[in-house]
């Protein structure tokens, strides 16, 4: 348990001439819920994509569970990838599959689970995200935005991951739904002991969920600490992001639900 789940060392990302990250170091130990915040275009989603290996940083290393993401044989890499689940911003459900098949897909790809085991596991995941059994046969096109997120979360949880990455989990949900979704993630995190990394703009979500907050500004991680501590830091970005009147209200609301 001593090995940190995520270790980023000296991440530099460049798109053409535009430098997005200039030396990012970040360590996330197991069991933490870390929010990644930053202004629009500060490369939060890019960093998340680098963590899961969808993008390769120009320089620097990404270690998941103490190992380089691309180290080892193909089978070892696949095993490592099964230890984390990702919730994409738009859900990224397979539109040709129904809800059940979407969640069952990663389980079937393991080869070796019986049909009964797959079915039980899928129905449990759907129950965990508070979906009804009759939703299992719906197609993604027939789901509302909130349900898409739930199904996507169920799919991200299908392989019992230790690490969950959430890209804007509450974007596009109404305040009521997003509060319910935050509550759901909180519950799951407690029950399953997950490590969670989320990218969010939503201060309610941030205050309610995170045990630590990583602030991405000036192309690096400005600070990674508890929200209370961050609020005391004197920096123009933090001033604007956390201490405006609007932000204060949202944070207070989020703290209440936490």
């Amino acid at each position: 348990m001593s090995v940190p789940v995520i270790q980023l060392e000296g991440i530099v990302t460049r798109f053409g001439h535009a430098v997005v990250h200039d030396g990012i170091d970040l360590t996330i130990p197991a069991g933490e819920v870390v929010s990644l915040v930053g202004g629009s275009g500060s490369g939060k989603t890019t960093l998340l994509r680098e963590i899961v290996g969808l993008l390769t940083p120009t320089r620097g290393t990404v270690r998941l569970f103490g190992e380089d993401l691309h180290a080892g044989s193909r089978a070892a890499q696949a095993r490592r990838r099964r230890r984390f689940g990702m919730l994409f911003q738009q859900g990224a459900l397979f539109s040709a599959f129904n809800v059940f098949e979407n969640v069952a897909f990663p389980l079937r790809e393991l080869h070796g689970l019986s049909e009964r085991e797959v079915r039980d596991a899928v129905m449990l995941k759907l129950a965990l995200v508070e979906l009804q059994p009759e939703h299992a046969l719906l197609m993604p096109a027939e789901l509302s935005g909130g349900m898409v997120k739930r199904v996507a979360l169920a799919r991200a949880l299908a392989l019992e991951p230790e690490l969950l990455l959430l890209d804007e989990p509450t974007a596009g949900l109404d305040p009521d739904r997003s509060a319910a979704f935050v509550h759901l993630i909180q519950e799951l995190q407690h029950q399953l002991g997950l490590t969670v990394v989320l990218v969010t703009h939503d201060l309610d979500t941030l205050a309610a969920l995170s045990s630590r907050v990583a602030v991405l500004a000036e192309k690096r991680i400005l600070v990674c600490d508890t929200l209370e501590h961050i609020m005391t830091i004197d920096h123009p970005f933090i001033e604007r992001f956390f201490r405006s009147e609007r932000s204060q209200r949202a944070l207070a609301r989020g703290m209440e639900t936490a």
Binding site: R119, D120, M123, L124, L126, A127, L137, Q191
Partner: peptide
């Protein structure tokens, strides 16, 4: 014990079949 209780509580619902 809690993990087992959780599984027991959520049960193994059958997906609705056509």
């Amino acid at each position: 014990g809690r993990a087992i209780e959780r599984v027991a509580a959520l049960g193994a619902a059958r997906p609705a079949t056509r």
